[in-house]
Design a protein around this nucleic acid. Structure first.
Lengths: 250, 250
DNA sequence: GTCGCTGTCCAACATAGATTAGAAACCGGG
DNA sequence: CCCGGTTTCTAATCTATGTTGGACAGCGAC
């Protein structure tokens, strides 16, 4: 299968650049350096490991298209997903400075992933403008992690699922992947469960309820939010932690 | 009360420098710049807010002595602690690049905190060696957050408490705050509960069990681990995510 | 020494969510 | 169009953890 989804845009600026530019000003040279990073992206099938805990990968992975997840496995086989990686997200900027991977990363859907040699990465990291830009993305990632801890630790299942949906909605919208209040959510109920520390059957119950009370509809991987404000309130979502601030009316 | 705890060391190198130096080589000039940051530290009482969600603080806070916590409040008043801040930890490096605080920070014990003006911070951040060093700390913080998500999401209360104890043990040891297998743990059972998404009464139950099965003893804010290996195994703790690697035999 | 506060501990009871098992719907491939 | 593997959905049962309420211990202030 060469061409994948029915709706597809030419998207001249790679999502990474688009994302960085919403917040950090980039020079032309920087922009070119970044574009080069995204150049050589490989197709990867769904449910493929990109790196595994314990690896010391010699290159950094960058999502160009499709979804991936960061996860940890427990001795008893349980899995906890700690992040969903969307187009424009680095998978493992860490390896630049940290040694060994402390978690694994796998694609969820078929995806396009850029494999960036460590050396190239170091070169880019040499540019003062770009270290800052990358540091910024790291800080936002951190903020998302904090929000997830709250989600898992103190919200009930209903609130947690609602909150996750709101987050994905805002993040995807900021990358232009939301049309109206509808977006592709290629997640299995089990994957949602693993992200929220729940059981697939309980996620199912919650999803039923979200539908029954007409917050959302979700079929065939397409999710529609019927009343965003109501969902936001019901799940105590506050987008401030995503630091998208001024959507930069460009 | 002027002098607090019985055991206290002169500790000429501020914990921040000690911490950074375990991993990133620093130049003399860098070291001096860092020392300057720690210079003007103020005493702060216990349970004082340093910053609150929504603030746009004009300076960065750095823990020099004592404990603090990062937390979020939910609409229903529940609290989730997302990090414990120990000596040498920055509280809010974020504000350098992110705008508004998306969470609050409060001291837990009486503490010494350096208030670093944003301008000073920017100057320091200008040094290539130091941006990297700071970026490294951010990456480790991130790794800790991921471990916490697993803790809260997929471990049962017993495992979670055990895991937290192991983490604090290793982190404190790396800063020289552990003698034998005993260290000061100035946390209330309620604070532990708020960190793990549990209830104070259930934390109490778990603590009882940890004592009954002689994993630890914990009285008067002093915690002793009786068999570290066993506790590590029982709680599925793997220190790899702290990236302390070579404990730098100095 | 007593008061008042905070933190620990304890017990009885309630419930959100886990577990297990299986039926139905869906999907890609031959 | 059928087949085997996934994913979704349901129902019945069980359990870890939450809730409430109250006793007790430690400790600083007076």
């Amino acid at each position: 299968m060469a061409s994948a989804s029915p709706q597809r845009e030419p998207a001249p600026p790679p999502p990474l650049i688009a994302k960085l530019e919403t917040r950090v000003p980039l020079r032309d040279a920087d922009r070119r350096a970044l574009a080069a990073l995204c150049a050589d992206a490989r197709e990867v099938g769904p449910r493929r490991n990109l790196v595994r805990e314990g690896d010391r990968p010699d290159h950094v992975h960058l999502m160009v298209e499709g979804w991936a997840a960061r996860y940890k496995l427990l001795p008893d086989g349980a899995r906890q997903i700690t992040a969903f990686l969307l187009p424009g997200d680095f998978c493992d900027l860490h390896v630049t400075l940290l040694g060994e991977m402390d978690h694994s990363i796998a694609t969820l859907t078929r995806a396009k992933v850029a494999f960036i040699p460590r050396a190239t990465m170091d070169a880019v990291t040499g540019r003062p403008g770009l270290v800052k830009a990358f540091w910024w993305t790291t800080l936002v990632d951190e903020a998302v992690l904090r929000a997830w801890i709250v989600n898992v630790g103190r919200r009930d299942a209903f609130g947690a699922v609602g909150h996750l949906i709101c987050e994905l909605y805002v993040r995807l919208r900021s990358v232009g992947l939301v049309a109206d209040h509808r977006f592709a959510l290629p997640l299995t109920q089990e994957e949602i469960a693993d992200a929220l520390g729940l059981t697939p059957v309980h996620v199912n119950r919650v999803l039923q309820r979200l539908r029954a009370e007409s917050f959302i509809s979700f079929r065939h991987g397409l999710l529609t939010i019927h009343d965003y404000g109501r969902l936001e309130r019901a799940s105590g979502f506050n987008p401030n932690y995503l630091h998208i601030e001024s959507p930069v009316e460009n």
